[in-house]
Design a protein around this nucleic acid. Structure first.
Length: 764
DNA sequence: TCATACCGGGG
DNA sequence: GTGTACGGTATGA
C-alpha cells in the first residue's frame, strides 16, 4: 500500500544507526547487524525541487516534471548538490533581475534538504530497521565545572558511563581531562551520546574549552572537529543558536525528550535532571544532591561527595534517556531524518512536513510552496465557567484526542493536500497506535518488547496530536490551512456544546467546560453507575470517532475561576489547580492554611475551617509560627549598586531585607527568603537552598515579623480564595475584621457553602 | 496597578 | 537550513 510507504518508507534495509552525507553525493551508513557495527560508503544523487526549470537544462543536471497542481514541480538531480544550487540561484537571479547569494532567499521556490535527508527521502530507508532501543550502544557523559561560563570557568571532573553501564570518573589537569574523554568515547565507540542539556551546556562548554586549550575534539566516527547546525535551542553563536554534530554518532539531549513529554502531560514540577529523575522514580533514595553553584567548593573539601554526585548524574541520564527516548527512536523508524534531529524537532515542522514531502515525491506529485497566512484569524477553543463555589459529587468527562478525531471524522485536511496524505497518515497512525498499545499490554512488564511498543505508541500519539497544530501554523508548515484549522476548532466547540447540553438535560449541574472536557455535579441519589451511564449516553450523541470518556469522580470541588479549582477525591486526596492556588512565592503559613481550610470546607466542616483561620491568626499574634513560615522566596535581579541608586525613589522589600540583615553584597539571580518586620525587612535561611549542611544549623528564628501585616495577608490573599464558597454576608462573618467576628452575622455553625450559577449558561 | 517580554536548563 | 505551548515571573508604561 502506498499509504504504508508514506508512513515508514519502502526500503527495509536493517540496522541503520547513523547516516552522514555530504553535498558531493557521498554518504556513509553505520549499521548494526547482530550487534556488530559495519560501515558502508556509498554514493547518492543529490536532488532539489524547484518551481521553475530555467537553467536546469545544464550539463550534469537531469530533471523531470512532477504531476498535478503545485508550484514546486521540477525534480532536479545532479552528482553534486553545488551544481544544483548554482543552477537554482542562477535561474532565480535571471528571473528576478538581480543576483541571489543563498538558496535560503528562495525558500518558497526551492526545496533543498540536508544531504542525509535527501539520501533517506530518495532511498526510502529509515533508521533502526529491525533494532530495538536496547540494541543501541549508548554512552552518557557529564561535565562538572567551576561555573557556567567557559571563557572564565573550567572543567574539573567528567563522569562517563559506557554502553556496558560502567561509570568512570575522569579528573585532573583540564587539557588531559578533555583528551581522556575523547579517547574514552572513541574506545567505547557508542552510536549515541546522551546527557541532560547536552546541547545547551556540556557540548558548547566542552567545545569552547577544547578550543581555548587547543585540544582536538574528535568525537565523531569521521575524522575532524565537531560540525554545527542551526537549531532553535542550543548554544548561542552570534545572534543565532547552533547545535554541534559529530558525524557517525547521534547526540541526544534528554532535556528535549523531557520538554516533549511534559508538553502533553504538563505534570513535571521542573525540567531539571534531578527533579525529573525523581518524578519518574529513577533516582536512588540516597542520591547525592549538591546545589550547582557549590559543586566546585564541595569538591575541594569533600571530593567523594562530588564523585557520588557525578556518578548519579550519568546513571540517571541513562535511565531517563531510555524512559523517554523511545518515542524519538520510533519516529526515526518512520521519518526520513536523522534520529538526532527527530529527538529535538517540533512535531509539525520536524516530523509531519518531511513525511509529506517524501509522500509527494514518492507519488511523483508536485508540491505546493509553503503556506503563508492570508490574514485569517485563528479561532480557539471554548471555555465556560457555569458555576462557582462548592459542589459535591463531581464527575469529569473528556474526549481523548478531540482534534485529530474531528479531523478524521469530518475528513478535515489541508485544502492543498490533494493526495489526502495527512489524513491518510493520521488514520494509519491511529490504527497502528491501538495495535501498539494492545501489544504493549501483552508484553511482560519491564521487557524490551513492552518498551518498544510503548515508545511506538508514544511516537504515534505525538504525531497524531500535532496534526491539528500542523494545520494552524502558516509560515511554518508547507500544507498549513488556517481555514481547515478553524473548522476543527469550530467542530470542537460544537462537540463541547452538545456534551454540555446532553449532560444538563440528564439532570446534572454543569460546573466548568474547557476545550474537550467537562466537570459536572450529579444529584445525591446517583451512584457511580448512573454517572457512567450518563457519560455513555452523552457520548453517543457525539460524532463518529469522537469518544467521550469517564475520566474520574470526586467527592467535592471548589470552583473559583476558570482553570482555577480544588478537587477533593473520595480517597481524601486534595488537588489544587491554577495560579490562584499555587505560587512559588507563597508564604508557607498561607499555603498551609489554604490547603487545610479547603480540605475542611470540601469535607463539610465550615466550623473547622473557621477554626483553622482563627488558629492561624492566634499563631501569628503569639509568634508561635517560625519565621520561615511567613517568609517568601524571591529572586534578586538587581546588583547591589543598582538597587542603592534607586533606593531613595522606590524601596523594595527583597533588597531592604538583604540590607536589613547586614548583607550588602549579592549576585543577580540569588534566591533568598524574605519577610517583613515592624521596622523593615529581613531574610531567613532556606533549608532547601543549603545542601552543604553547615549553614542550616545556625539558622536563626527571631520571629520578629510584622504580625498584623501577615494577619491582613492571611485574609486578603489566602482567605479571599474561599470567597466564592459563601454568600458575601457569610464570608464577611467568617473572615471579616478579626476583632469583630461573629458580632452581627449568623452563628458560624449555621453557615454552609454555596454554589452560584454564573448567569445564563453560555451555551451558544 | 496593568500590559508585554522572556524563560524554562546547565555548574 | 529553524520554527511547539503555556504558565509563571520580571520588566516597563
Amino acid at each position: 500500500m502506498i499509504e504504508d510507504e508514506w508512513l515508514t518508507g519502502w526500503d527495509p534495509t536493517p540496522g541503520i544507526v547513523s547516516v552522514w552525507a555530504e553535498p558531493d553525493g557521498t554518504a556513509t551508513l553505520w549499521r548494526r547487524l547482530d550487534r556488530a557495527l559495519i560501515r558502508e560508503e556509498l554514493r547518492f544523487r543529490p536532488w532539489i525541487v524547484t518551481s521553475y526549470a530555467d537553467e536546469l537544462a545544464a550539463p550534469g543536471i537531469t530533471y523531470r516534471e512532477l504531476e498535478g497542481e503545485g508550484s514546486l514541480r521540477f525534480l532536479a538531480r545532479a552528482d553534486d548538490l553545488a551544481t544544483l544550487t548554482r543552477a537554482a540561484l542562477a535561474g532565480a537571479g535571471r528571473r528576478r533581475g538581480h543576483e541571489l547569494g543563498h538558496v535560503r532567499e528562495l525558500a518558497d521556490e526551492v526545496i533543498v534538504l540536508a544531504p542525509e535527508e535527501q539520501y533517506l527521502c530518495a532511498s526510502g530507508q529509515t533508521y533502526f530497521g529491525g533494532l530495538a532501543f536496547d540494541d543501541l550502544r549508548r554512552l552518557q557523559f557529564d561535565l562538572e565545572t567551576t561555573g557556567l561560563d567557559p571563557d572564565r570557568d573550567r572543567i574539573f571532573l567528567i563522569g562517563v558511563r559506557d554502553p556496558e553501564g560502567h561509570v568512570e570518573l575522569l579528573e585532573g589537569d583540564e587539557p588531559a581531562l578533555i583528551a581522556r574523554l575523547v579517547a574514552t568515547i572513541r574506545a567505547a565507540d557508542p552510536d549515541v551520546i546522551e546527557n541532560h542539556n547536552l546541547h545547551g551546556f556540556d557540548l558548547p562548554f566542552l567545545q569552547r574549552r577544547a578550543e581555548l586549550l587547543r585540544v582536538p575534539l574528535e568525537l565523531g566516527r569521521l575524522p575532524g572537529p565537531l560540525r554545527q547546525r542551526g537549531a532553535r535551542r542550543g548554544a548561542a553563536a552570534g545572534d543565532r543558536k547552533i547545535r554541534f554534530v559529530a558525524p557517525g554518532r547521534e547526540l541526544i539531549d534528554t532535556l528535549d525528550a523531557v520538554l516533549r513529554h511534559d508538553f502533553s502531560t504538563r505534570e513535571l514540577p521542573s525540567h531539571g535532571l534531578k527533579a525529573v529523575a525523581k518524578a519518574f522514580g529513577l533516582a536512588a533514595d540516597d542520591r547525592e544532591l549538591i546545589r550547582g553553584d557549590q559543586i566546585h567548593a564541595v569538591y575541594q573539601r569533600d571530593p567523594e561527595r562530588v564523585r557520588r554526585y557525578a556518578r548519579s548524574d550519568v546513571e540517571e541520564v541513562a535511565l531517563l534517556a531510555r524512559t523517554l527516548g523511545g518515542a524519538a527512536f520510533a519516529l526515526a523508524t518512520m521519518v526520513p531524518r536523522r534520529y538526532e534531529r527527530l529527538a529535538d524537532a517540533g512535531a509539525a515542522t520536524g516530523v509531519i512536513d518531511p513525511l509529506l514531502v517524501r509522500a509527494y515525491l514518492r507519488s511523483g506529485a508536485a508540491l505546493p510552496r509553503p503556506a503563508i497566512s492570508d490574514g485569517t484569524e485563528h479561532s480557539g477553543a471554548a471555555l465556560h465557567l457555569f458555576a462557582a463555589g462548592v459542589a459535591h459529587r463531581v464527575v469529569k468527562a473528556d474526549v481523548a484526542s478531540l482534534y485529530p478525531s474531528l479531523m478524521r471524522s469530518f475528513q478535515i485536511g489541508p485544502a492543498l493536500d490533494r493526495l489526502h496524505a495527512l489524513l491518510a497518515i493520521v488514520d494509519r497512525l491511529v490504527e497502528k497506535r491501538l495495535a501498539a498499545k494492545a501489544a504493549a499490554k501483552r508484553a511482560p512488564a519491564g521487557s524490551t518488547e513492552r518498551h518498544t511498543f510503548e515508545a511506538l505508541s508514544a511516537a504515534m500519539k505525538l504525531v497524531v496530536n500535532s496534526a491539528y497544530g500542523y494545520l494552524a501554523a502558516p509560515g511554518l508548515t508547507r500544507f498549513a490551512d488556517v481555514h481547515a484549522a478553524n473548522e476543527v476548532t469550530r467542530r470542537g466547540r460544537d462537540v463541547l456544546d452538545v456534551m454540555c447540553r446532553g449532560l444538563a438535560e440528564r439532570g446534572v449541574t454543569l460546573l466548568e467546560a474547557d476545550t474537550d472536557g467537562v466537570y459536572f455535579a450529579v444529584p445525591e441519589t446517583w451512584s457511580e453507575l448512573d454517572e457512567r451511564r450518563v457519560v455513555t449516553e452523552v457520548g453517543a450523541l457525539l460524532p463518529p470517532l469522537v469518544s467521550l470518556e469517564y475520566e474520574g469522580r470526586y467527592a467535592a470541588m471548589l470552583s473559583h475561576e476558570p482553570k482555577n479549582y480544588a478537587l477533593l477525591g473520595y480517597d481524601g486526596k486534595l488537588v489544587l489547580r491554577g495560579v490562584a492556588f499555587r505560587s512559588s512565592r507563597a508564604e508557607p503559613f498561607g499555603e498551609a492554611f489554604l490547603r487545610d481550610a479547603i480540605a475542611k470546607l470540601l469535607a463539610g466542616d465550615v466550623v473547622g475551617m473557621h477554626r483553622a483561620y482563627l488558629a492561624t491568626i492566634t499563631a501569628l499574634r503569639g509568634h508561635a509560627l517560625p519565621t520561615y513560615d511567613v517568609s517568601s522566596r524571591v529572586r534578586l535581579t538587581k546588583p547591589p549598586a543598582e538597587y542603592l541608586a534607586s533606593r531613595d525613589v522606590r524601596r523594595e522589600l527583597s533588597y531592604e531585607a538583604m540590607l536589613g540583615a547586614g548583607r550588602t553584597t549579592w549576585s543577580v539571580g540569588d534566591r533568598v527568603r524574605v519577610y517583613r518586620t515592624l521596622t523593615g525587612a529581613n531574610i531567613v535561611a532556606d533549608p532547601d537552598d543549603e545542601t552543604i549542611g553547615v549553614a542550616v544549623t545556625d539558622a536563626r528564628d527571631p520571629r520578629d515579623y510584622d504580625t498584623e501585616h501577615y494577619v491582613r495577608l492571611l485574609r486578603d490573599t489566602y482567605a479571599s480564595r474561599l470567597a466564592r464558597a459563601f454568600t458575601p454576608d457569610d464570608f464577611a462573618t467568617l473572615f471579616g475584621a478579626p476583632d469583630q467576628l461573629s458580632l452581627f452575622g449568623a452563628p458560624i455553625a449555621e453557615i454552609g457553602p454555596v454554589l452560584t450559577a454564573l448567569g445564563p449558561a453560555e451555551l451558544g
